[in-house]
Design a protein around this nucleic acid. Structure first.
Lengths: 199, 199
DNA sequence: GTCTATATTGGGATAGAC
DNA sequence: GTCTATCCCAATATAGAC
């Protein structure tokens, strides 16, 4: 299919680089993850790595994109076995296993608030998609009576995302806090009021 | 009191620097706020400024500290005229007037998650104090029936802080979102269930 | 206390050979 | 595609004069 396999090889190499980068960042954190460091980890020179990703930021955005894909794939594997809320809570809980990645996410998202940042579009789109999906889920739950009806679904989705993001900053600062538990508390606030005892 | 006024002068100069830095950062954003830039704005050379604050990070932490003090002073001015929740909501709303400062806060807090960062202790202590104060307020409200009793006050305080932090990131990315409104929604979730009509 | 000048560093990007 | 070598830049930090 690919002529002389060169295109396919390039894609495979990119994947290899991203996987390796993911590991290094998870282990060493964002601060120590220079292009040089990431290049060495995958057995390339700095210039060699930049042949695949033009700039450092593009590389980092690609790392986060790949991680989102992995999370999504896992979620879909488990579709139907749990509620939307429960799935969200579990993803947050799993995050606590990869401090370096959380740091990448927190710091890159902070830097990418600047519209001129190469990863700005990535985060904008990610947020939009998240809000849309979660708001849809919440609306469905409201319709079937498993979520409070007196809250705007868009706003609830936004709050969920914001709280999750904010908790990650807190957790990086103090890893003893339980992100999943806090998220669970927020989700509980979104449950419909308990049915009266005589219902 | 101070011998030849030299000590008092140093303190005044520090204040002058901080005030100026606050303005520059609010206007130019975090990215463009180099020590040189901040020094020029207050009529000093870079080395001159660093005479007062040993390092860039110490300067930035001092800027945030000063801003917290200003917020606190304003809040205390208005004590008693509003509920704790309303005060919180209004502070968030005011934040939307100073994008540069929000950026400073978001980015510095992200960087300071690293325990070795010079501003780490500042954020740790700030978070602790916030949680303690807000949790206390919530407990009081629970006792008097103006907040849901079935939520842990510490967790609610944490969620409030996390949501506020996360919303700031979202807002920097897209300034059309209304932080205060979203916070208000969360606060509403913490209200006690409406009294039955026949109560 | 303040400046000028310089050291140092840390890294990203680029040119050109192989 | 990959490397070596180098460029280059932005900043902070520091030494030492005034």
């Amino acid at each position: 299919m690919a002529r002389r396999g060169s295109y396919a090889k390039g894609v495979a190499k990119r994947e290899e680089i991203l996987t390796s980068a993911l590991e290094v960042i998870a282990r060493e954190g964002y601060g120590r993850a220079s292009v040089r460091e990431l290049a060495e980890a995958v057995g390339l020179s700095q210039a060699g790595l930049l042949h695949y990703f033009g700039t450092k930021e593009e590389l980092f955005a690609a790392v986060l994109r790949k991680r989102d894909e992995a999370d999504l794939a896992r979620s879909e594997d488990e579709t139907g076995t749990r509620s939307v809320f429960e799935g969200f809570r579990q993803t947050i809980g799993r995050n606590a296993d990869v401090p370096g990645l959380i740091q990448l996410y927190v710091r890159l998202s902070a830097e990418a608030t600047d519209a001129a940042h190469p990863a700005h579009a990535f985060f904008t789109e990610r947020t939009r998609a998240f809000r849309e999906t979660v708001a849809g889920d919440i609306r469905r739950m409201q319709a079937e009576g498993t979520a409070r009806a007196d809250v705007d679904a868009e706003q609830a989705a936004m709050l969920l995302l914001a709280a999750a993001d904010g908790l990650q900053v807190q957790w990086l600062t103090d890893p003893t806090i339980d992100m999943a538990e806090h998220v669970a508390t927020l989700l509980r606030l979104l449950e419909p009021p308990a049915a009266p005892a005589d219902a």
